[in-house]
Design a protein around this nucleic acid. Sequence first.
DNA 1: CGAGATGGGACAGTCATGTTGACATATCTT
DNA 2: AAGATATGTCAACATGACTGTCCCATCTCG
Lengths: 169, 169
Amino acid sequence: MTVPSRAPTPIAAASPLFLREDEIRRGIELLYFGYSAMIRGADAILAREGFGRAHHRALYFIARRPGLAVGDLLRLLAITKQSLGRVLNELQGHGLVEQSIGTTDRRQRLLRLTDAGAALEAALFAELEAGMAAAYGEAGQTAVTGFWAVLVGLIPPEDRALVGRLGQA
Amino acid sequence: MTVPSRAPTPIAAASPLFLREDEIRRGIELLYFGYSAMIRGADAILAREGFGRAHHRALYFIARRPGLAVGDLLRLLAITKQSLGRVLNELQGHGLVEQSIGTTDRRQRLLRLTDAGAALEAALFAELEAGMAAAYGEAGQTAVTGFWAVLVGLIPPEDRALVGRLGQA
DNA sequence: CGAGATGGGACAGTCATGTTGACATATCTT
DNA sequence: AAGATATGTCAACATGACTGTCCCATCTCG
């Protein structure tokens, strides 16, 4: 390791002039490393099961919104239907996801997890949750509110509804 | 869109019982979508230049720590040297990155950006900065401090020094 | 009712970026 | 002098994106 060292990482407060380049870079870097760290635990489980992150994302959102239509999942993931198609076929082939025909629009295919799918998703969620809960606890409630606020600010206004909606009944 | 709608996304405060599943899921989702949103602008520039995110990450860290050794970059990116090797060869082939021999350890290859490399990195950074600065401004200084604190909490303690060190002279 | 739009699916080919494993060379450390 | 370390390279492979094209079922609207 050649990078010069310094004292143990204090959690510095944002300065009043917080738009300086260094504070922007700090945000970029923490977002990158924080995201990587959150994902890491789940990756190990996925590797054992022979799946990848693409499968995880699909499982996650189907678990979050049972009965989600394929098109809605496509918009959440922001990938092409060909890419999603492969992933869904694999998940269905392994009996983790099942489809039903839409009630109001019979062209739609509504997605939900089977029991096996729900079990895998639960194991994956438990990994993410462990890291998140520890970080929330360490940082405190006020910090969590700020964490959410900055992340919402990063999302283009027209996409915010899509994300916010996930948490609603 | 089939997902049920709700009123315009308020930035809710974290509840006292903030370890509930829904608040964990909110963090996971905002982290995912926030990270995706931050990256998006830079991707467009990269596509025009014929590069990808791997090139961006290398450029970013070399810009951040000029004279960074290959091994240190490897540890930051957490990929294999074969993967990094391809990326660095491409960047050097396009005259964006140059190497020099380490001063204290002649086995090391120290990396820095050429003028052209610095120009590209600056354009990419400007994209990230625009989104970050807007989010910081919208959320406020206290929120930014909380944002950092939660993200630091997500990073395993043994990796925190590596990240914190980036910001130091 | 019929035309066109929409939701979903499939085939084929390509690209970016990661992985293992094996090996080579130069240099540092002991 | 021996072994560890820093770097580089060849080869083969996996994953998960992409584009382009075509298909069918179903809904919407004039």
